[in-house]
Simulated assay, not measured.
Amino acid sequence: MEKVRRLRAMSSLCRQQAAYNSMNKWKLLAEAEYWDHLADLELSSHFRLCNAIASNEIEQPQAITNPE
């Protein structure tokens, strides 16, 4: 989750710079979108991994006993 925070911070910095740099505004906004996209990918990857781990915990096989 720390990586997502850093990627969002990079996006925020680009947006702040775009507000003060009209010559490179569109380039900086595009870069901010890129950082947001990377953060979204990282976040979805994290939750996919969490869900996979959680589903493995739920679906653990139970011991079968033979009543004889």
Results as ranks from 00 to 15, higher is better:
C50M: 09
L7G: 02
E33I: 03
E68K: 13
E31Q: 13
D40K: 10
R15N: 07
I58T: 04
A63Q: 15
K3Q: 12
N66V: 13
S45T: 08
A30S: 09
D36P: 04
A30T: 07
N51C: 08
N24M: 01
V4G: 06
K25W: 00
E33T: 10
S22P: 02
L41A: 10
P67A: 12
Q62S: 14
E57L: 13
E59G: 09
R6G: 05
S22N: 06
H37S: 12
L43P: 02
A9N: 15
C50P: 01
S11H: 05
M23G: 05
L28G: 00
L38H: 07
S22Q: 06
K25M: 01
C50G: 08
C14M: 08
E33N: 10
S22M: 02
R15A: 06
E57I: 11
C50Q: 09
L38Q: 07
A32R: 00
Q17D: 15
S11K: 02
N51V: 09
N51Q: 09
S44N: 11
P67L: 14
Q17N: 14
E31M: 12
M10Y: 06
Q16G: 13
F47S: 05
A18S: 10
I53T: 07
I58W: 03
R8D: 07
F47N: 03
E68T: 15
K27Y: 02
L29R: 00
L41D: 11
R15E: 06
H46V: 07
K27F: 03
E2I: 07
S55K: 14
W35M: 03
E33R: 09
C50Y: 07
R8L: 11
L29F: 00
A54P: 11
N21H: 06
S45M: 08
E59A: 11
N56W: 15
S11W: 03
R5P: 00
